[in-house]
């Protein structure tokens, strides 16, 4: 968190980024048993919820459309088709409503002078920690829909192919500042980092 207050003060209207509560045990995505390794301090942008909802919808619509087409084309077996459609509808709705909220509570990040620390996922979750001294590249990228929401992803890679740290759904300005901060920090260190 040190030396990083500027990101919080700079992003007006996005209080979530300044959330400093450290993820109390009340948050359902993070359980009380994890008390010893606390989650990263910062949430991602609240706008990411909308983006994730849109993406989940985009995944379910073709499935529903396919089922409807099958129902119309088949002619018979109507009860079976209806049961299938209801099942898809319930699963899809649950996913579209629950996943983005859950994900938003889980996706967190933090940068200290020594390390980058991220948490991601929803049903399955993962925390990644990499020392600043081992960072090899810092990339940011935005897909077309992410641009629509004013979002950006930051990817921090190390020499290991197993450990890129991805922070998804950051506010665009916050992402830019994060990249600047990290590249400044790593260019000072010229060792091999393998």
């Amino acid at each position: 968190m040190y030396g990083f207050g500027d990101i919080c003060h700079g992003t007006v209207g996005d209080n979530a980024l300044c959330s400093d509560d450290g993820g109390s045990a009340k948050i359902d995505g993070v359980e009380a048993t994890e008390a010893r390794l606390r989650p990263p301090r910062h949430l991602v942008s609240r706008k990411a919820i909308g983006y994730w909802t849109l993406r989940a919808l985009g995944g379910w619509l073709p499935v529903v459309a396919g089922q409807v087409a099958w129902t119309l084309g088949d002619g018979g077996h109507l009860p079976w088709h209806l049961a299938g459609l209801v099942l898809t509808g319930v699963l899809g709705a649950a996913h579209v409503i629950v996943m983005p909220q859950w994900r938003f509570r889980v996706h967190r990040w933090e940068v200290t002078p020594e390390a980058v620390y991220t948490q991601s996922g929803w049903f399955d979750q993962e925390r990644r920690i990499a020392p600043i001294s081992r960072i090899q590249t810092v990339d940011s990228e935005r897909g077309p829909f992410e641009q629509l929401f004013g979002l950006a992803n930051v990817t921090v890679t190390t020499a290991s192919a197993a450990g890129p740290l991805k922070i998804r759904g950051l506010d665009r300005e916050a992402a830019e500042r994060l990249v600047d901060h990290l590249t400044e920090g790593t260019s000072a260190d010229r060792s091999d980092a393998t």
Partner: peptide
């Protein structure tokens, strides 16, 4: 060792386990 990935699936969290990478 460069860094750590601490993976916890839903069921791992329920049983208090983790996969440390």
């Amino acid at each position: 060792i460069i860094g750590w990935n601490l993976r916890r699936s839903f069921f791992q969290r329920r049983s208090g386990l983790a996969t440390l990478v």
